[in-house]
Design a protein around this nucleic acid. Structure first.
Lengths: 211, 211
DNA sequence: CCTGCACGGTGACCCAGGTCACCGTTACAG
DNA sequence: CTGTAACGGTGACCTGGGTCACCGTGCAGG
């Protein structure tokens, strides 16, 4: 009989070797996170690698002086790259991880990392791919913050949301966008209005329709 | 008799197993880069992992529309994290790597990566540590661009230079600082002047003295 | 039915920092 | 010695976008 963990691994991590999945299922801790809850805060210690089994989480970098900026989504089949690099020694997280849907994560104590790396190609590839993707994402983020004006960043943000959430109706408030882009609500409202005038979006109460 | 590559590895990568160093010495290509020259450009293919043997290189992210931003230094004993993640498949670089001193790098074809990862703990640890450090550096960079004003960023930049170059006299032009911070010379000059008035630096022709 | 609150719109204002124009100084090449 | 280029200083100006104040509207809970 299959455990819950094992079932999640089979569905979302099929590239792992069956024996790896078995091993993981034995040592993993599974945790449910209700929508809106924070799994990890800046400055917290990391003792486990986080694999996402269900739901959707948002990963933010927090500024020292209040404020945060959205980095990327974690979805089923993804892992938090940061929680993978943090080795044996007690590392502290530099990010904040928040569930935006009811989510389920699989926690693997970091001490097994090295062992799996060496014994399972599937795990090795997964880790390397995760690093690559996240690195790429961080570089893109740097681009945007450093080189692009707010209006361009907003358009990119909306496109990204549409692609990720697979819908043209984005149920997201102006303030939330402002937080994610580390701007302010008024600015976002103004820019959205501009986009509406350009016929690129349609604004509704509670959601934004992309054209 | 030792080869040149082998000697570099012994000096700057002592944490590698002796057999690993031997293997590396056999497959490595060694390359000298005169100061000022660019080793890698955005969009170029990567086929080798870069280990730094001598000198000092600066790594930049380039914006699409002209402009660049300094990410970090590579020094002897360091490696370019990006060139490690880029797997078997032809990945293209998202960064620009420029020698600021006459430098020597050791190039290891990426196809050996996986093998070394599994066979040598020293290599595994090195790669993981490199990832962790670079990730951390990128996060710090994001912080600075997103949350800090130019004057604070400038101070941080100067401190960083002093630490890295181990000298209070920074031989660097205002324009170069401006490029690195993706600002403009005038702004940097103004801010430096402000710092001088606060007694935190002393400006000279061709160099900046930190107090 | 009210009342409060979340959401969004809008005008007025301000400021960091980017841009432009221009100049003085130093260094080096011819 | 002189021309030219790199470097740096400075004032004038502009603008993106952050901030403040305030309002309207729709909805949920008493």
């Amino acid at each position: 009989m299959k455990t819950e963990t094992s079932a999640y691994l089979d569905v979302h991590f099929p590239q792992f070797e069956p024996e790896l999945r078995e091993e993981l299922a034995e040592i993993a801790e599974i945790r449910n996170i209700p929508a809106g809850e924070t799994l990890m805060r800046t400055g917290q210690n990391i003792r486990s690698t986080v694999l996402v089994a269900e739901g959707r989480l948002k990963l933010y970098r927090e500024g020292h002086d209040e404020g945060e900026i959205f980095m990327y989504y974690l979805e089923p089949g993804n892992a938090c790259a940061l929680s993978m690099v943090c080795g044996q020694q007690q590392e502290t997280s530099g990010v904040m991880l928040k569930a935006i849907e009811d989510s389920t994560v699989i926690l693997i104590p970091v001490k097994y990392m090295e062992n799996f790396m060496q014994r399972y190609k599937g795990w090795y590839n997964f880790v390397v791919e995760t690093y690559r993707d996240r690195f790429e994402e961080l570089l893109t983020l740097i681009d945007h913050i450093a080189f692009r004006a707010m209006d361009e960043r907003l358009v990119h943000y909306l496109d990204h949301q549409r692609d990720k959430l697979r819908t043209n109706k984005l149920h997201i408030t102006h303030s939330e966008i402002a937080t994610d882009l580390h701007s302010s609500r008024e600015v976002i409202s103004r820019l959205l209005k501009k986009l509406e005038q350009q016929g690129r979006v349609k604004l509704h109460r509670q959601y934004i329709e992309m054209l």
